[in-house]
Computed example of a mutant assay.
Amino acid sequence: MSYQFDHRELRDVLGSFVTGVTVVTTVDEERRHHGLTVNSFSSVSLDPPLVLWSQSNSSPSYPIFSKSGRFVINILAEDQIDLSNRFARSGPDKFSNLEIDIGNHGLPILKDTSAWLVCRFVSAIPGGDHTIFLGEVEQIRRTARRPLVFGGGKYLVADTHDLAPPQSGKTPGDGPFHAMRLGGRVIARLAAEFDQSFALAVWGSHGPTVINWAPSLTSPRKTLPVGLVLPVTLTAPGIAFAAHLPKSVTEPFVEAELSPSAIERWSADLQTARAHGLAMTINRLGGGDSALSVPVRDANGHAVLTITAVGDTGQFEPRLDSPLAEALRVAGRSLSRRLGYVGENGHVHGTPQAADP
């Protein structure tokens, strides 16, 4: 049969399916330890408890595993890339100078993994140039360590998705801090998607304060220092915060920064931010920067975080109707939802319940 793709193309497509990383280990009749890195591990059944994994028929350890009575699935933790690389290489010394635990039947169990399963060999199923090994789970252990992830030919980090709703509709106990952690992942993703620089800011004791940056990947610009306090009335983060904070919180900053003649413009900035769910500035600070900023709001509708796209005015033209603007709105809504801010009909609102001009 003739296929319309080559092995490289197939490998790339299969690599888009993200998996965990395991090291499967066993012991032979002479009590020697064997192991190899595997990401083809999968659950099969809960009753009876069955799992499977596959191995290349040309693997040096294939004869060992095909005759093994038992094996261990060691699910690696996120800091065990070195173990994954060690057992991905061919060679007789994979266990050299490696501290391990010895389980029942003399099976080698790797230390400090995310989890492990001891399995009894059930059957081997031919699968092209691989053999699928089916095992019945006899013993398990799980730790609090996060698992290592692999996809697209790269090691990845497993974390809660920023678009996922909170479990059981509950807000995490460390809500704002959780949002800050997720916000760092959001700006990294947006920087890669839009090739633009993004900033994360919180409302501090002195006003909007930058806590993280994700620079453009191909056109890096000089980012502002972490910890920088921004003007409230002249920056997109400041406007986004002020549009969704009580007037009593922002008024001292506004009075210190604006003359009476600028109040009308300031009121228009707030109305635009509330109406569109975004704040926009074009070269307000005179340094050539333009920005779009979205607020992240808590259960009371107050802004606790802002996500901002920023760039040189000559290269970045902020627009309220652009794909970037919509991506910012989506990010702001998803993080706000995680903090318990829900508007009408269960949807996050872009307009506050009660806004102070």
Rank of each mutant, 00 (worst) to 15 (best):
G173A: 14
S248I: 02
F65W: 03
S259R: 15
P126V: 07
V294W: 05
E78W: 00
Y341Q: 11
F150W: 09
V24P: 07
P252K: 13
I75K: 03
Q271N: 13
P246C: 04
I75P: 06
G332N: 08
L182S: 10
E251Q: 14
G301F: 05
L230G: 09
S45K: 10
L335E: 00
A199N: 10
Q55M: 15
F150E: 06
A192L: 01
S197A: 12
I239A: 08
T113W: 06
G106K: 04
R146E: 14
L320R: 09
S219W: 09
L14F: 15
R31L: 12
R333P: 04
T281H: 01
V23Y: 09
G103P: 03
A179G: 10
L339V: 07
L292V: 09
L190C: 05
N300T: 04
S248F: 00
S290V: 04
V229A: 05
G152A: 13
A309H: 09
A325W: 12
I109T: 09
V210T: 13
R86M: 05
N85Q: 14
V137D: 08
E257V: 06
E30D: 15
I132K: 03
C119N: 06
N283T: 02
N212M: 12
L258H: 08
I109W: 07
S290Q: 05
H34N: 12
T37D: 08
P252W: 13
A115L: 02
L98C: 00
R329C: 02
F71A: 06
M280K: 14
L324E: 15
L228V: 06
F41E: 02
R32S: 13
H7T: 15
F5S: 07
F198Q: 13
S40E: 07
A243N: 09
L50F: 11
F194K: 04
D321L: 07
H347I: 03
N85V: 10
Q315N: 10
D6K: 05
A88R: 10
T218K: 14
T223R: 10
R337I: 00
A303L: 03
K111E: 11
V304C: 11
V118G: 14
A354L: 09
L224R: 14
V310I: 14
H349Y: 08
F177H: 12
S168L: 13
V18Q: 05
G184V: 03
G340K: 01
E29S: 11
L278Y: 05
N283R: 00
A192K: 15
R265H: 06
Y341V: 02
L285Y: 01
W53D: 07
D321H: 12
D6L: 08
T131P: 08
Q80H: 11
G152D: 11
G311L: 11
H206P: 00
I187T: 01
P295V: 09
F71I: 01
A236G: 06
